[in-house]
Write a protein that binds this DNA or RNA. Structure first.
Length: 192
DNA sequence: ACGCGGATGGCCT
DNA sequence: GGCCATCCGCGTA
């Protein structure tokens, strides 16, 4: 996979924790009508599947969670707290129900457009440093639920520079009520 | 630099 | 009816 090319389905056809770790440094890109937005993924969380109490797939296949059971590399986009969208990359085989939540990215392209969509952001760093902010800045909504991130759609994740283990912190997941201790959050710690 | 609570709506029970 | 894989602003230091 060349630098910048979309990560293939095989990349996602692994355990969610491994994919979450390896998505650090990859480049999320949205080629929208308003312009191209891209950013380097710097924070992720793994949701392992139906046996993971914190995972949406634990409630089974519903209208909301439908695409979490899609093929590896599917975008699973959900609506939360009445106002925020969050985007995941589905992992493992179709029908399994595991995914990686994209929690934060560093803006690369399209910063002016991001700022227009995130008027409350006080700094570039504040544009997409949270799962709801990522979707707001990138213009990701229900319209992207079920798209393939592996190429052929306007929403992709491309290969980026590898992040070494020294620069990765592993912590419990944020904002959940179940399985709160599971170390499935991955963060790039090194500045820049 | 923290901690807390309100906003806001779709969906499961 | 109540629960959310969140964000923001306001309050105390």
């Amino acid at each position: 996979m060349r630098l910048g090319g979309p990560l293939p389905p095989a990349f996602y056809d692994r355990d969610a924790a491994a994919v979450a770790r390896d998505l650090l440094g990859a480049v999320l890109r949205h080629d929208s009508d308003e312009g191209v937005i891209s950013g380097r993924i710097v924070e992720t969380e793994a949701y392992l599947g139906p046996h993971d109490p914190a995972s949406h797939s634990a409630v089974g296949r519903t209208a909301r969670t439908w695409h979490m059971f899609g093929p590896p590399g599917t975008a699973y986009v959900y609506f939360i707290y009445g106002m925020h969208w969050c985007v995941n990359a589905v992992t493992r085989e179709e029908g399994y129900g595991s995914a990686v939540l994209i929690r934060a990215v560093q803006p690369l392209e399209g910063v002016p457009l991001m700022r227009r969509r995130r008027l409350r952001a006080r700094s570039d760093r504040d544009l997409a440093n949270g799962p709801g902010k990522v979707c707001a800045a990138f213009g990701i909504t229900r319209a992207h639920d079920g798209l393939l991130l592996t190429g052929g759609s306007r929403l992709t994740i491309g290969a980026g520079e590898t992040v070494c283990d020294d620069a990765v912190a592993v912590t419990p997941r944020i904002g959940i009520r179940k399985a709160v201790e599971w170390p499935l959050r991955f963060v790039v710690t090194a500045a820049r």
